[in-house]
Simulated scan of single mutants.
Amino acid sequence: MITHPKGNIIIDGGTAMECATDPIGHWGEIITNVYWPVMKEEEGCVNVLKNMHIDPESIKYVIQSHLHLDHTGATGRFPNAVHIVQRKEYEYAYTADWFAAPGYIKKDFDRPGLKWHFLNGEADDFYDVYGDGTIKIISTPGHSPGHCSFLITLPNSGSILLAVDAAYTMDHWDQKALPGFLASAVDSVRSVEKLRFIAQQQNALVVTGHDPSAWPTFKKGPELFYD
């Protein structure tokens, strides 16, 4: 979550809270035979915010890096939110190839009444959400066709680059390995090269998406946060 004077923002929101009580019912047997979600109900996105005394109605935007099942926990949960996603990612989520289709849980994002704002690839690269440089959305396809990463610039903590799944681990970031899942190896490699340049340029703290070794080194809310 990012707090901002113009309205609070959620990026992705993790896994849907239904997976805490009924993983097979929500995700289905195909994907739960490969990935099993481990979470408690209080770890669902909305419940975490309520425990932090943050009103769900204060969320102005839900920004999606992509629409895979472990990143759509905030979609449709916040009544005033506009959902921002790459158009290519949204369209692919409904028409995914056989190897990728189980990773998209349509009941998460195919909800009546959702308000969407679509970005269009390179034409909207470095999309500045509030126009003040705080939150920029970077096009980083490869892991999925419309994947995005985020450059967050804070007053005291400086620049933080959320690679999300454009770089799974530091081995991927350091060009020693490809991620565990991808739509395009070529796009994945080029997106990491792009992010490495940005990180160097901005002297940014880099947060990869799924690195268990790096994760303990970061500040994590609600007790600790970057400002």
Rank of each mutant, 00 (worst) to 15 (best):
L67E: 15
Y90R: 00
E29M: 06
C45F: 14
G131R: 07
D55Q: 09
G25C: 10
G103N: 15
H71I: 13
G25P: 02
G44I: 04
K60R: 15
P102G: 04
R111T: 08
A101I: 15
N51L: 05
H66L: 06
R87A: 11
P79E: 11
V38D: 08
D97Y: 03
G133H: 10
A74E: 07
E29W: 11
D97C: 08
D97N: 06
T134I: 12
G25K: 05
K115I: 07
G113V: 08
H71Q: 14
V62Q: 00
A123E: 15
H68D: 14
K115Q: 10
F99C: 04
H53M: 07
D70F: 14
N51F: 08
K136I: 10
V46A: 06
I105L: 08
R87T: 09
D132Y: 14
E41S: 09
D55M: 09
E89W: 01
I137Y: 06
H117W: 11
H66C: 11
K88L: 13
V85H: 01
N120K: 05
D55V: 10
Y130D: 05
S58W: 04
W116I: 04
W27T: 02
V48T: 12
L69S: 10
G133Q: 08
C45R: 07
A100C: 05
G103F: 15
W116D: 06
A100M: 14
I31L: 13
R111N: 08
D128M: 02
T32S: 09
I59D: 09
V46G: 02
I59A: 09
V62M: 01
K107I: 04
I54S: 08
L119H: 02
N47D: 14
H53W: 10
L67C: 14
T72A: 01
V38G: 00
R87Y: 15
I30F: 10
